[in-house]
Simulated assay, not measured.
Amino acid sequence: MTFEEMKALLTEQILQQQLVTATISQPRMKSNEIKRIKLKPLMLKNQYHIQIEYQYERILKHENILLAHFPSKLDAFFEEYRQAHIDFVDETVQVQLSKKNKVLWKSDKTASPKQVHLSHNRKKN
């Protein structure tokens, strides 16, 4: 599988609103301040968004992006990071990239579909 095919497959799954959670990690440059990026879908004002959580050394920052604007962000993430663990409704995907963008793709189908939680605010216990 080529780098472009991998990005196309992931983008297609995300645009079909199949994403449950995702973690993008292992920055290519040690000087990169953002250590990890987490993605999760949510519904804001009746529109489907992807919440991006940037994990710095001691700080978390959040950004909500409309689904239509997300593919360009995904391209930028894979330029700067080497690993992704993505949970879709019916499968789990592990992607690793080499220095020359050679793709190692591992996919496991899940027996029962996962639930997507699109809520934005949590309930207090």
Rank of each mutant, 00 (worst) to 15 (best):
N46W: 09
P41F: 11
I65F: 00
H85Q: 13
Q96I: 10
R82F: 12
V95G: 09
A111V: 04
K7C: 02
E4W: 02
Q94M: 12
I24E: 00
D87A: 09
Y81K: 15
I65H: 00
D108T: 15
L118I: 08
I14M: 13
E63P: 01
T92W: 08
H69P: 08
N32Q: 15
M43N: 07
V103Y: 10
S119E: 13
I50W: 03
R36G: 10
E12A: 12
F88E: 06
D75V: 08
K106I: 08
V89T: 13
P71F: 01
W105C: 02
F77I: 01
L44T: 15
Q94E: 11
I65E: 04
E80G: 03
A76L: 04
Q47T: 09
P41G: 14
S98I: 05
T21M: 09
A68M: 11
F70M: 10
Y48V: 15
T21S: 07
K100S: 15
V95A: 06
R82D: 11
I65M: 13
K124Y: 06
S107E: 14
N32G: 07
I37V: 03
Y56N: 12
Q96K: 11
I65Y: 00
K109N: 07
Q115N: 05
V95L: 12
R58Y: 08
M1D: 01
N121P: 12
Q16D: 15
L19T: 03
Q17C: 15
S107R: 12
V20F: 00
T21P: 02
H85Y: 11
L9V: 05
H85D: 03
T21R: 01
D108Y: 14
V20T: 00
K102W: 07
H85V: 07
Q51T: 09
S72A: 11
L118W: 03
F78P: 01
D108I: 02
Q83R: 09
I14V: 09
K45A: 13
Q115R: 10
T92R: 09
K61F: 13
N32H: 03
K38E: 15
R58L: 12
K38T: 05
E12N: 12
Q47L: 15
Y48D: 02
E79D: 14
V95Q: 04
Q13Y: 13
L39T: 07
H85W: 13
E12Y: 10
N46V: 05
Q83M: 13
P41T: 07
H117P: 05
K100C: 04
Y48C: 06
K100T: 07
R28S: 08
H85I: 14
A84N: 01
Y48P: 06
P71C: 02
L104E: 06
L104Q: 14
L97M: 10
I24D: 00
V20P: 00
Q18L: 12
T2P: 08
H69S: 05
Q13D: 11
L15W: 09
E33L: 12
K106Y: 14
F77H: 06
K106N: 12
L44Q: 11
E91T: 14
K30G: 04
E4Y: 01
K123R: 10
K40I: 13
Q17W: 05
K102C: 15
H120Y: 15
D75R: 12
N125R: 11
I86Y: 05
